[in-house]
């Protein structure tokens, strides 16, 4: 009993201390010895469990660094639409000057975003759409276009015929569906044949397992098209274990600096197609809105392809074709 009476308040104190340290770290404004920031921007990120979204916040952070006039607050919804909804409501009632939101899903988040917008707070929607038009600006990339570019690239690289394994991202998600549809469109009517396709749910261990199955079944595979770079990396490891990695080209999507681009530089992937986060563009657009400039309602980000030849030079922009 005695230990408990001491332990409880002690635990409480420890928790409070840890909490205040953690909060101090999270909301620490960019060290500004000069004038206090003029504007506050609230960022609501739907899930920081994905490296790509960590990168998006990173891009926002580094773009905001050079602008002492703005202060950026970050919140992570941990893949929960309702939590994200309350974050947007919190930003609206706190009266931030602008909201940048990368929504988890369209339907549950349309209403709170529209409410903030009607209240006079500009809202920039990043990467995933909401329903209707009650927001200031949408910034995102086009997965179908990227998938199609990957298809065209495969066509050129393989010279019109070959056997392909497609490792799909979660096929109940729109990026998975779009990257699939775009690629199919890109290779349509050619001699390229998809001999094996499997849903690896964006996960590297699953991609490796599926690729092992493909390798056991097919003595000849010319190219692996994975819907993300970790998937392509997993496929490479499976092929390497079977001693067949030299016969196969591996293509992935996302092109993150510490992931896809690294795999290309190390000769693991033959190509990685960038799926831009739009973090930098969001901050640039936010600054325009805050200083009263007009911005387009929709900004489609262009993306780059990284190959061993161009990766050191920063990749090559995709042309529409």
């Amino acid at each position: 009993m005695k230990t408990k009476t001491i332990l409880l308040p002690a635990a409480g104190l420890a928790f409070l201390a840890a909490f205040s340290v953690a909060c101090g770290k999270d909301h620490g404004s960019p060290a500004s010895s000069a004038a206090p920031p003029k504007w506050t921007i609230g960022v609501s990120q739907c899930n920081l469990g994905e490296p790509w979204r960590v990168q998006m916040n990173q891009d926002i952070r580094s773009a905001a660094e050079g602008h002492p006039e703005i202060k950026v607050i970050y919140k992570d919804s941990q893949n929960d639409s309702l939590r994200q909804r309350s974050q947007i409501e919190e930003y609206a009632s706190a009266g931030v000057d602008l909201i940048i939101v990368s929504p988890k899903e369209a339907a549950p988040l349309t209403a709170p975003i529209a409410a903030a917008y009607r209240q006079g707070i500009p809202v920039i929607v990043l990467d995933r759409r909401v329903l209707g038009t009650e927001y200031t600006c949408f910034i995102g990339a086009d997965n179908v276009r990227i998938g199609k570019a990957a298809g065209h690239w495969a066509l050129r690289k393989l010279g019109g015929s070959g056997k392909i394994v497609e490792l799909e991202g979660l096929m109940t998600s729109t990026p998975g569906q779009d990257r699939h549809a775009g690629f199919r469109e890109g290779i349509e009517g050619s001699g390229l044949e998809i001999v094996f396709e499997a849903d690896m749910k964006w996960l590297e261990p699953d991609a490796r397992r599926e690729m092992e199955s493909a390798l056991s079944r097919f003595p000849r595979i010319d190219l692996v098209y994975a819907h993300n770079d970790p998937g392509a990396h997993g496929a490479f490891l499976a092929a390497q274990a079977a001693g067949r990695e030299k016969d196969i080209l591996f293509v992935g999507i996302d092109g993150l600096p510490h992931e896809g681009q690294v795999y290309v530089k190390r000769g693991i992937l033959a190509a990685s197609f960038e799926y831009p986060t739009g973090g930098r563009e969001a901050v640039e657009t936010a600054l325009k809105i805050l200083s009263g400039e007009a911005v387009p309602r929709e900004i489609t980000l262009s993306s780059r392809v990284y190959t061993p030849e161009n990766v050191e030079a920063g990749g090559e922009w995709l042309r529409d074709n």
Partner: peptide
């Protein structure tokens, strides 16, 4: 795990002070 790794995968690519990567 997320705190130790900073939310990123820890691989053979080590980020240097200037933001570039060393393998």
């Amino acid at each position: 795990a997320k705190w130790v790794s900073g939310g990123r995968k820890i691989s053979t690519a080590v980020q240097l002070a200037d933001g570039s990567f060393e393998y």
